[in-house]
């Protein structure tokens, strides 16, 4: 199959990539555009380390053919990192020791971003359900769940919630 041009919005900027059909978004991001924050833990769609947001919805970039993002808005971890300092979700993960080896972290943060936009004050069960497609072998999840709760506070103020 001959390469073709696929156009989409990546982290707020228009991009055109010349790519063979059925190439995964993961390979386009990591190999062609050299945006490596999106990780490649399994390439089977089952670990969540490659999660990106497509029009605000979490998707596994390793299973997503590049054609499917034609004209769509793709957000990766690079796109939420501010020029200086950290995004409130990143701050929360950092401050709460929700990071050990760091390999699952980008996916966890992207899922958290989508969750907190949908639901500003999720309870613990909602957080765990939202993260259920993301595996972490190091932390045991408790610190990650705390970080998501803390991120909600940082984004929306703790609003009288003790």
């Amino acid at each position: 199959m001959k390469p073709k041009i696929v156009s989409f919005t990546l982290n707020g900027r228009p991009v055109d990539v010349m790519v063979r059909p059925m190439t995964t978004l993961q390979n386009v991001l990591r190999r062609q555009l050299e945006l490596t924050a999106t990780k490649a833990g399994c390439r089977q769609g089952s670990c969540g380390s490659c999660t990106v947001l497509v029009n605000g919805e979490p998707m596994a970039a390793c299973l997503l053919p590049i054609e499917d993002v034609e004209g769509q808005e793709v957000l990766t971890l690079e796109g939420i990192t501010p020029l200086h300092g950290l995004h409130p979700i990143q701050e929360a993960f950092f401050e709460n020791f929700a990071v050990q080896c760091g390999y699952c972290t980008p996916g966890m943060i992207m899922v958290t971003k989508a969750l907190l936009e949908r639901e500003p004050r999720p309870d613990e069960a909602t957080i765990r359900e939202a993260l259920s497609g993301n595996l972490c072998r190091c932390t045991g999840y408790q610190a990650i769940v705390q970080a998501v709760t803390d991120a909600a506070d940082r984004l929306h103020g703790n609003g009288g919630v003790s």
Binding site: R30, K39, L86, F94, C101, G102, T105
Partner: peptide
């Protein structure tokens, strides 16, 4: 003391370089 991880900023921004990130 529970000081923060030295590599934590790199991990939360995805800027830490892992082997498969190298090409």
């Amino acid at each position: 003391q529970s000081v923060h991880r030295r590599d934590g900023m790199g991990h939360v921004t995805g800027r830490t370089t892992f082997v498969d990130d190298i090409q």
